[in-house]
Structure formats: C-alpha cells, structure tokens
Design a protein around this nucleic acid. Sequence first.
DNA 1: TTGTATATTGTGCACGTGCACAATATTTTT
DNA 2: AAAAATATTGTGCACGTGCACAATATACAA
Lengths: 347, 347
Amino acid sequence: MKQEYTLQDIADMAQVSRGTVDRVIHGRGKVSKDTYKKIRYVLDKISYKPNMIARSLRKGVLFKIAVLMPDYNYEIYWKPAVKGVEDAKNEYSIFGIKIDTFLFNPNKFQSFRQMYISILDKNYSAVLVAPFFFRESLDFFKKCIEIGLPVFTFNAQLDNECIVSHVGQDLISSGQTVASLLYKIFGKTAEFLIVHIKENVENSKHMQEKEQGFRNFCVSVGMPKKSVHVQNINNIKDLNKQLLSYLSDHPQIKGICVSTSKVWMVAETLHNHSEKPLLVGYDLLEPNVKYLRSGQIDILIYQNPYQQSSLSISNIIDYLMVDKKVQKKYLLPIEIVIKENLDTFLG
Amino acid sequence: MKQEYTLQDIADMAQVSRGTVDRVIHGRGKVSKDTYKKIRYVLDKISYKPNMIARSLRKGVLFKIAVLMPDYNYEIYWKPAVKGVEDAKNEYSIFGIKIDTFLFNPNKFQSFRQMYISILDKNYSAVLVAPFFFRESLDFFKKCIEIGLPVFTFNAQLDNECIVSHVGQDLISSGQTVASLLYKIFGKTAEFLIVHIKENVENSKHMQEKEQGFRNFCVSVGMPKKSVHVQNINNIKDLNKQLLSYLSDHPQIKGICVSTSKVWMVAETLHNHSEKPLLVGYDLLEPNVKYLRSGQIDILIYQNPYQQSSLSISNIIDYLMVDKKVQKKYLLPIEIVIKENLDTFLG
DNA sequence: TTGTATATTGTGCACGTGCACAATATTTTT
DNA sequence: AAAAATATTGTGCACGTGCACAATATACAA
C-alpha cells in the first residue's frame, strides 16, 4: 500500500538527477530557483522519508546524542538514571546512534559549566540534560538556541523555548498521594508532620511542591490547617535533637512524611522511639530499601530514574529518526512502594 | 579500540573469498572440510558480529516477529498490550523489523489454534505469545520446538523448554500487597472478604495465587485464619444478591478485595450500601477508573499490560540482534493506584 | 565569435551484506 | 587420458544514501 520513495524516484519525478535532489534535501545550495521549486514540490507531495538504514550504512554514525547529568559517585540517586542511558547506548549503537555521557559534580556548578562547554562544539544532534543547576542550565539553553541544538530535559523541570520534550515527575500529585495514604490509614482527625531536610538550595523547589500537594489534599478532605506540621532541618547534625524534641512536644502526630530521599536518616533517628509514627519518604536508595524491609520505613514514593532517562532517550530517537511528534511533557507514574511489592521494583 | 570486522576481513584472514565466508556463516553447505575449519577458527577467534545495518539494507526485512494475543474487542483488558505492540512496530520498522499481530478470540480456543497454525509456516524469527489457553499453548510450543522457533511469553506464565524469556506478573506478591494495605488501614483485628468472579476457567489459577498471597500475609502478621472470607461468584447474575446477603450476615467485614478486573461490578453492587467496606481490585479498565475517581473503588492494583508487551518486544529484539543474554523471567512492578496518582498512570 | 570564469547539474563510488552466477578444482565415467 | 559430471570457490551486482568530482550550461569579458 504505502510505497517508500527513493532519491532516484524523486529525481525521476522532478526530471532532474539524484545529486540535485540530494542537494535540495540537505540544503547545500548550488541549485537554481526553478529546479529547487520543482523538487520541493515533489518532496512535499510525497512527504519523503529518507531510508535511515542506507543513510546509517553510508555515514557510519547516524546521530550523536550528548547526555549531561550528575555523577552518581557524588549522589547515588542518579545511578539508575545513568544505567538507563547506558542500556540505551548498547541497544541503539548497532543502529548507528552514538550516545556520550557527561557526568558533572552536583556540588560544583563549575563542573556543570565546564561540561556543557565541551558539549557545544562537538556538533551533537541533540542533548539530554538533567537541569540540576538553575542559572547555569539557562545559560546553557541560550547557547543551544544559538547553534540550533535541540534540548531534552528530564527529572527537574525548567521551561524554555528550546526544550523539545521533558520527562519528569509530578511532585504535587506525589504530595497528594502521600497525604491520601496517611488519611486512609488514620482518618481526618489525625495530625501529620512534614520534614524537609535541606542540603543544597536546588532541591528546595521540589520540597515546596511536595508540601503543597500534601496540604492541598488535607484541605480538600476538610482537615484543619493545623493538622499539618512542618519541620525544616537545615543542618543534619540537628536532626536528632530537633526531631525528637518536636515529637515529644507533639505526641499526637501519627505520620511523618520526609520530602526527600534522606528519609533513612529519620528512620535512624526514630530507631528506638516508642510508638513510632508511620514513616513515609522518597526514592529507593539502598538505606531506604533496607529500612523499608525491616519495617522502620513504611512507605516509599518512587519515580523511577531509570525509566526517566531511558524514556528520554527513546523520545530523542523518535524525534530524530521518524518525524514523530513527541509530547512536550511526559510525567512518570508515581509508584507507591511498600515492603510487599518492593522486590518487583528492584528488578 | 574495538574494531568491527567485515566479511572481507575474515576472508583475508582465512585466505579464502568473501562468498565462502558467507556460506559458512549461513551454513548453506558447499564448503570443503578444510576451509570450513579454517573459517570457523577465525570466526570464533574474533567473535564476528554481522553489521545489521548492511544486512538490513540488503534484505529489506531483517526479522519477522509474530505476536499472538487476545483480541481486545472481546476483552478490553488487552487493549494497552496491543498498543504496546503497535508502538514497538512503528519504532522498529525503520530498522527492518517487521511485527505481525495475530489477535484471537479469548472465548474460543479454536480461534487460538487457527491463528497459531497460520503462524507456523510463515518462517518468523521469533514469536511472542500470551498463553491464554493452557492446553493449546502447550501444543503450539511443541510445534515451535519442532521448527526451532524461539518462543517468548508474557502475561500468563507457562513453563516450557522452548520459552526463551517471560515477562509477567507476580500474583502472589500482588495478593500480599493488597493484604498489607488493608492491614495498614484497619489493623490486625479486622476481617476481609475476597471475591472471585469467575467467567472462564483460564483465570482461576490467577485468582488462586492472589488469594494465596493475601492469606500468606495475614498469617505472617498473626491474624486468625477466619478473618479472611471468600466468596465465589460463578454466575454474574447472582452477584448482587449473593454479595449483599453475605455482607449483611457479616457486617464486621472492613475491606473487600476483588481478584479480577471485574471489581467495577462490585462497586455497582455496593453503590448505595450504607457503611461501604473499602474496595480493592485489579486493573485500570475504564469503569474501574471511573469508580476510582468517584471514590466507589478505593485502590486498584495494576501490572501495566502496555509495559508487559513492549518490554517483551524489546527482549526479542535484543535476543535476535545482539546476542545479549535475556533473562528467563521479568516481573513487572506491582503498582498501587489510588485517586491521587491515577492520572500519572493513564499517560 | 571565441575564450574564460562561474553557476548549475549529472555520475561514480563506497558503506557491508546476501545471493545469483561465473570460474575453477576435483572426481567420475567412458 | 580425455571428456563429462560434480564439488568447491570466487566475483559482480544491488540495496539507498552522501559526497567528491566530472560534465555541462550559462554569464561575462576580450
């Protein structure tokens, strides 16, 4: 039914030669106005799709993709995301798609800057970024627009015209989900505590959104405002003292939600606490998994970093290969992990 | 670092011609013992990997994959699984991989048989099956072994030597997960009801495993055996009467787990039931989603059929293209879906 | 007009493979 | 031993593309 046209077919239709068609397609000039119009006409009419197999055979490497994300040696959270990229790299290398990974130090914005500069002049076909540093990412995007490099982001969201597609998390819904679970368990008369453990400024927006989602839910079911307590831990050394004293002052607190993956620290703090409140947190880090198994942590919320990165790569390839319309935004499932379904997430 | 060898390279090393190497690789005979050994030696030493790009360009179609699964017009559950295959088809068609879908009527085993017979003589490189019919699937597998057709399964599990890899669900864990959630909410003194709605025999094994998981959990936390009630609905017409009378006889029941996607029927039954027990069921069918939104259903357990089928296809391609070792068994995450995270699963 | 510079268009080759067919070596038959 | 039959090996082409280079057409100067 659907025939695939070749360059020769088009050349025949436009009554020119293969080479001229090629020049029009790749816009390397040296074509008269008349023939250009003739060829464009045919091209538009049949909506020519180049044979990527042949192109790949000829060129050796079809596309080069750069991935810029934090080094998991500094922040273990990123390990699965890196794995996702590695797997994609192996999967697609046989099709002539090359993926280069640039891992920056998430504690040094200079490291990020240094990496993105070295990406800019290597003429990649697309770049995937985890825009960890706000300001520096915007600088990077500006440069990308200049050289026409399409940008894809994942994990953290950052609106910008040059971003073709974003794969990320719905933080507000995740806050709502946690609240809903606690509500199901304890009912509307209970009181809850949100703990924010701050280490770097970049995360604070994440925390705020999660808290907002949590509060939204509580309001929606008619809980009084004061039933949601908040504790900010600005220095990890204070965690023990601050948290324990707050809990002994407010023994009515039934559930604790830690807004980051540092929930294992709270689990340790509560280790031999009598009448431990129910503990909910984020991400499947090793210590979190350990405490979920042992019952010190009750629920973890997970938005698969592996899936985030590998879906991003798939999107990029769809975008580059087929002219498939990719969505501007993909939100990954909010996974509720308890002891009993934990293993099905660890693969 | 790692050079890729071509047929010509190998021919040079073995001091023969390109064509002879080709004959050895594809085993089309007509090669003397001596030269065969020479070429095999070189081949083994360098672990030759054919250039799939070139092969695809030459052959047009690289691999043909057959997919055999239920028709979603009879059973809406299968719609996302079919979608997963369709998406994979589009994704990989540009690489010369052809996927044919065979949808059988899940109410007629003859339909299944008819389909698999027509698959057998079309020399596919691999086949993906949802082994819905137990006996017939085994017959099919026997035939596949005869003609050396590698079999991949998903959704339902069925052990057989010819199955290269299986993508599926962990039903026991899913039962445990449901029990654990109810336990978290109601504590160990509560009583629960498991409802099995039977329509065809094939599903009963699924139900049993879920029930077993549920019971396992209850035992493990020291709940008395009698706190888990079971009702078998053999005829949907009896559902209303049977369920309502059971509930009025046992008002102490706090939670209901329906072991299949028919949970929406129970939701309808309980529509204006005073003091409705908490309702848990399976799968994101449209009516289930509707009732989850409206609060008639509280929790749904989901094992993404879309992911099941698309992961299966990925595995097949890894197996055929790269000689990557695929795992014998992949278990998909058990997703806990409530109103608040529902949208993140519907994409 | 002829020659020269430049703008435009056409052609050949390589990428690595699979397969048909040609070429050569070996065995069998007369 | 020569011819015929068969077994084994070598070669050429096509797949569709991108690019270098050859070929042709057009404009301009002498």
